[in-house]
Structure formats: C-alpha cells, structure tokens
C-alpha cells in the first residue's frame, strides 16, 4: 500500500468491491453466530466498527516504534484492551444485548478482520487514512451482518427488531414462520447467497 490511495476509496471500497466478509472472507465466525436476530447483529456491528477504527488509529500512531518480531502480540494487546472497554460499556448500558452476544464480544479480539486490517493497512499508513479504513471495513462487515440478520429474523421469527411484521390474517391463512432460519446453518446459506449475487454482478471476483 505504498502508492497514494484516495481517502474516498479507502472509506467506500470495503463496502462492496472489497468487502471484508464476502470478498476477503474474514471475520466469518461472528457473522454466522450473532445474526439470528437483527438487534444483536446491529450491536455487534457497532462494536466492531468502534474497535476496528480505534485499533487502527492506535497501531498507526505506534507503527514506527513497534518492533517487527513482536508486532502480533502488541496488536493483540491493543485490540484486547479496546474490546474490554466495549465489553464493560455494553454490560453497563445494554445488558440484554451483551447477554445475547455472550462470548462473541470477547471473540472480536480474534476477529480476523482486525488482524488483517492492522497488518495490511495500519502498519503502513498515517492515522487519518487508517481511521477511515477502520470505519469503512467495519461498515462493510456491519452491512453483511445486518442483511443476514434481517433475512433470518424476518423469515425465522416473523419479526424485525422484536416487532411483528406479518399481520395476523396471514398466519390464519396458513403462513408459518420458517424455524430452519433460526438454526445456525442457515446463516451460512444466506451468506452464500449474498456471495452468489455479488459475484454474478462483478464477474471478475469469481474464482477460476
């Protein structure tokens, strides 16, 4: 990333063309596990955007002082510190959401998107572009999370953010919520469909 990159592309590329989840296939674990409902998906997305943006800035500020040999440990410690802060904040202000997310807030530490961005971008760029890169990639991750959460909650429980969507007469007429959507494997299939749709649009992303 030595060449001059425009700030706009740093912020917006990760949203579609270079999406961390469906194109680079990073950070899949949490996409699958927290998206049975829309609300935890949004909380998770916001947490990741925050942690990623600030971790990028901190590593970018430190980038000239970190010895190459122990950079992974330094990065892990910075990220872990930020995650602890987010975890404590969620426990204080959004206890229900933090209960639902259980271990997955802690697992932001090992989210590959974080390590990937810190290694590939923050280590070689100034703080401001690094901040935008963090926000962009965090948002790219959040978009996928929200799409999957939306589909799964809508068809799985017939609600969005806890509010009923389908009117009662539809249930009377024989409509049934698809219980399969709540189960973990369906998250994989929804993500596969997103990948399929995106690669049909952008042919050059296809493999072989």
């Amino acid at each position: 990333m030595a060449e001059k990159v425009s700030l706009k592309s740093v912020l917006f590329n990760p949203l579609s063309r270079n999406n961390p989840v469906v194109v680079q296939v990073l950070g899949i674990c949490s996409v699958l596990a927290v998206t049975a409902k829309l609300e935890p998906a949004i909380v998770m997305g916001v947490s990741v955007v925050t942690v990623l943006a600030f971790a990028n800035v901190i590593i970018s500020l430190l980038r000239n002082t970190i010895p190459v040999n122990i950079r992974i440990i330094v990065q892990l410690v910075v990220v872990a510190g930020l995650v602890v802060i987010v975890d404590q904040l969620l426990k204080a202000y959004a206890y229900d959401a933090s209960k639902q997310l259980s271990v997955f807030i802690g697992l932001i530490i090992t989210n590959c998107i974080l390590m990937g961005r810190l290694e590939a971008f923050a280590m070689s760029n100034k703080p401001w572009p690094a901040f935008l890169d963090g926000v962009g990639n965090g948002l790219g991750y959040t978009i996928i999370l929200v799409i999957v959460g939306f589909v799964r909650e809508l068809f799985g429980s017939g609600t969005l953010l806890g509010y009923a969507v389908f009117p009662k007469w539809m249930y009377d007429a024989g409509y049934v919520n698809n219980g399969l959507m709540i189960l973990p494997p369906m998250a994989l299939i929804v993500v596969a469909c997103i990948i399929w749709a995106q690669r049909t649009k952008d042919k050059d992303l296809c493999e072989e």
């Binding site: 189960l183 494997p185 998250a187 994989l188 596969a192 399929w196 042919k203 296809c206």
Partner: peptide, 23 residues
Amino acid sequence: IPRPLRGIGITFIITALMGIAFM
C-alpha cells in the same frame, strides 16, 4: 458448479449442510 458459486460460495453451502447433519 455455477461460476459465481465456485470456491468460497459452495464451501459455505456444504458447511451448512454438514451443520444440519451434525444437528
């Protein structure tokens, strides 16, 4: 396999099917 699904796409679907089997 349809071209857009090759590689990562189909792997997701297989993992999902295996997950259902493991249930």
